[in-house]
């Protein structure tokens, strides 16, 4: 029986590695034309034989970072509300609402935004309303539960003694946060932000539906552009041999490596504590 458990564990772990190996093997013909590096820096222009994914990398990174930049202050405020400032009986409801938010399907976010947000963005920014800014706003909403739950956890886990000390010295709640909570809670905050970044970058439907999907390298947040994930969803062909299709595997490798980097970053901060299930409940 023990071996059965062992097999299940090692099998699943092996699959994780296998995904990377297969993605790598399948992108080889593209990479053999140059290194991963050149693929990363070239534009996407299949008609002229250029299968680089630079525009998608730029879009993925910028939309994810902007989403996190929008979401972080909002989520920090919410976390403070839940842990410090909110009326006691409402805090608990707020936290549960945030958890519930985590179960809203991303396709529903995209669908609703298409009718509520896009026309308003069109009037506000000009253009078609389908751009990185629109996608980032909704991505910010998508990752909010992840960020808030991490923030709340790390704030509540910081030492009560220090908080009491600051309070006893006559400090306000803001001072407690500044001098007692933040110095201890920052690794948790950073973890939340990193995982939020990963989620924002890994989401497909929101950017596919809202970012416009043009193949240019974006100059501004108001430009239409396509993320790595949307690129994979858009370019489907059954011809494994075509370089166009192979470029998808380069996209996938970039996404894989980026999420691996984030996980390693989080674990490094956490000192090899496994990430808890907080992401889901």
């Amino acid at each position: 029986m023990k071996y059965l458990f062992q097999w299940a564990a090692f099998g699943s772990a092996l699959l994780t590695a296998a995904i990377f190996v297969i993605l790598y093997l399948l992108s080889l013909p593209l990479l053999s034309q140059g290194t991963l590096w050149t693929v990363l820096w070239q534009p996407w222009d299949p008609q002229h034989g250029s299968f680089g994914i630079y525009p998608m990398v730029v879009t993925s990174l910028s939309s994810a970072f902007v989403a996190v930049a929008i979401s972080t202050p909002l989520c920090f405020g919410c976390a403070l509300f839940i842990t410090q400032y909110g009326p006691r009986n409402i805090r608990r409801w707020m936290l549960n609402l945030v958890r519930l938010m985590g179960s809203i399907p991303t396709v529903v976010y995209g669908f609703t935004a298409l009718f509520l947000l896009v026309p308003r963005m069109r009037e506000a920014l000009g253009g078609s309303g389908l751009n990185i800014a629109t996608a980032s706003l909704i991505l910010a909403l998508l990752i909010a539960p992840t960020l808030i739950l991490f923030f709340v956890d790390s704030i509540t886990q910081s030492s009560q003694r220090d908080c009491h000390t600051v309070t006893a010295l006559g400090g306000t709640r803001a001072q407690v946060i500044r001098h007692a909570v933040l110095p201890q809670a920052w690794p948790g905050l950073v973890n939340g932000i990193l995982l939020g970044l990963g989620r924002a970058m890994g989401d497909t439907l929101i950017s596919l539906m809202l970012a416009g999907n043009s193949v240019q390298t974006p100059d501004a947040l108001t430009d239409s552009a396509r993320t790595l994930t949307a690129h994979i969803a858009l370019v489907i062909a059954a011809d494994v041999a075509s370089l166009e299709f192979r470029s998808l595997f380069a996209c996938a490798i970039v996404l894989y490596l980026f999420s691996a980097l984030l996980v390693i970053g989080v674990r490094w901060i956490n000192h090899s504590q496994p990430l808890s299930q907080r992401r889901m409940l």
Partner: peptide, 29 residues
């Protein structure tokens, strides 16, 4: 344990479209 933990964290962080692409590639092969 450490290695398995790391790999499972990694698996949970892989974007779903990458897993979809992996599945498609396997199916085509």
């Amino acid at each position: 344990r450490t290695v398995l933990n790391l790999l499972f964290d990694l698996l949970s962080a892989i974007p779903s479209i990458v897993i979809g692409l992996f599945g498609l590639a396997v199916a085509i092969v």
